[in-house]
Amino acid sequence: METTAVRTRLVEVVVPVYNEQRALRASIARLHTYLTANFPYGFRITIADNASTDNTWQLATELARELPHVRAVHLDEKGRGRALRSVWSRSEADVVSYMDVDLSTDLDAFLPLVAPLLTGHSDLAIGTRLARAARVERGPKREFISRSYNLLLRLGMGARFSDAQCGFKAVRTEIAQALLPGVEDEQWFFDTELLLLAERHGLRIHEVPVDWVDDPDSRVDIVQTALDDLRGLVRVARGTLSGATRVPLSGRAELPKGMAKQLPRFAIVGVVSTLAYLVLYSLLRQVVPPLAANAVALLVTAVANTAANRRFTFGVKGAGGAVRHQFEGLIAFLVGLALTSGSLSLLPAGVSHGVELVAVIVANAAATLVRFLLLRAWVFNPKRRNTP
C-alpha cells in the first residue's frame, strides 16, 4: 500500500538534446534501467530534441516506442532553456527535472535531489560540483571558468547557491511554472536566471554534492557561453534593480532605499571611468603586454572612480575616511582585475586587438556591477560612516 502511494508521485526527467545520435540510445537506456530498478517514485523521461539536424529525432521516437515511461518532443529552434520551458510549462508531474544527455553526474544523486521537493522541504534542488563532498573529474580550464563564474554570482548578485551551471536540477512543478514567465533566457543562462529569480523571491534551494565526470566529447563553446552568461548577468541585475521582473510569488524584493538616486550617478561616473580606462588601456597596450596594460589602467581609473563615487554618488564630503575608502576601494579593484585578467587569459594566442578589447569590456561591465555593490554595502555604508 505504501509503495503504491509513493509510485503515484510523478517526477518528469527532461533530457535536452541537439545532434546527439551517438550517445542518445545508450544514455536513455541506462537512465531508464536505473530509474526502473532504483527510483521509488513514478517517473517519465522526456527527450526534448532541439532542432537536431542528424538522426537524433528518429532515435528519440524509436526509444519512445520501445521503452515505457519514455516520450519524445521536438522543437523547431535550438536552446536548452527553450526546451526546458516547453516541457516544464506543460508538465502535470509533481516535480520537473533535467539532466545532460552525457549523464556526467552519478545517477545515485537523483533521489537525494528530488526527495526534498516531494516532501515539501525545498522548492528547487541543484547538484553541486563545488561542495567538499563532491568528486569531480574535469580539466583546469573548465574548473577555473566554473569557479570564477560562481564567485561572480556570489559577489555581484549575492547568490547563496554554489553551482549554477551543473546540468542536474529539479523544481517543484508549481514553482517552475510560476517562475518561468520571469525567465527570459532560452539558452545556457536559463539555469542561472531561474535560480536568481527563485532566491529573489525567498524560495528554498536544496543542494546535493555530486560525483561528476567531464564529457571529453562536449561541444559547448566555453568562451562564448561565458560571454553570454556575463551579458545575462548584466540584464538580470538591471531588471532586478529596476523592479521590472514580476512573478506571482510572495517575497518580492524592492529597490533598496536611496538606490534610485545612486544608480544613475554611479552610471555616469562609470561611463566616464570606462572611457578613461579604454583610452588608457589602448595607449599602454602599444608599449606593454595586455595583462600589464589592463592592471595599470584599472588601478589608475579605480582610484579616480572611488573618489568620484565618494563625492557624487554616495554624498560623502570632507577628508574624513578618504584613505580608508581608497584602501577598501582597492579590494573592489582586485575583483575587477581578476575578472578582466581572467577573461584575457582565456583568449587564444594571437587574437586581434579588437577581440581583446571586447573581452575586457564585457569583463569590466561585470566588475562594475560588483564594484557598485561593494561600494554601497561596504565602503560607503551609512552605518559604518556614522559609527564613531
Score class of each variant (00 low, 15 high):
Y34P: 09
L35K: 03
L35G: 03
T36Q: 14
T36C: 13
T36D: 13
A37W: 09
A37F: 08
N38P: 02
N38H: 15
N38I: 07
F39C: 03
P40G: 02
G42Y: 04
G42Q: 06
F43Y: 14
F43T: 07
F43K: 04
F43R: 05
F43E: 02
R44L: 15
T46S: 12
I47G: 00
A48R: 01
N50Y: 02
A51F: 06
S52C: 05
D54V: 08
D54L: 09
W57P: 05
W57A: 06
Q58N: 14
L59M: 13
L59H: 12
A60E: 04
T61N: 13
T61C: 14
E62M: 12
E62P: 09
E62H: 11
E62F: 08
E62N: 13
L63H: 03
A64R: 06
A64D: 06
R65A: 13
R65K: 14
R65S: 13
R65N: 14
R65F: 11
E66S: 15
E66T: 15
P68I: 02
H69F: 12
H69S: 11
V70M: 06
R71E: 15
A72L: 06
V73C: 09
V73N: 03
H74V: 14
H74N: 13
H74T: 12
H74I: 10
D76K: 11
K78R: 15
G79R: 03
R80V: 11
R80N: 11
R80C: 06
G81N: 01
R82P: 01
A83P: 08
L84T: 04
R85Q: 04
R85Y: 00
R85M: 07
S86L: 12
V87E: 14
V87Y: 10
S89L: 12
S89F: 12
R90I: 02
R90Y: 05
R90V: 11
S91K: 07
S91H: 06
S91M: 09
V95A: 05
V96I: 08
S97M: 07
S97A: 15
Y98M: 10
M99K: 13
M99F: 10
M99Y: 07
D100A: 14
L103V: 05
L103T: 07
S104T: 04
S104K: 06
T105D: 04
D108G: 12
A109E: 01
F110V: 02
F110K: 00
F110R: 06
L111S: 07
P112T: 09
L113K: 02
V114L: 01
A115E: 15
A115C: 10
P116I: 04
L117T: 08
L118P: 01
L118Y: 05
L118E: 05
L118V: 02
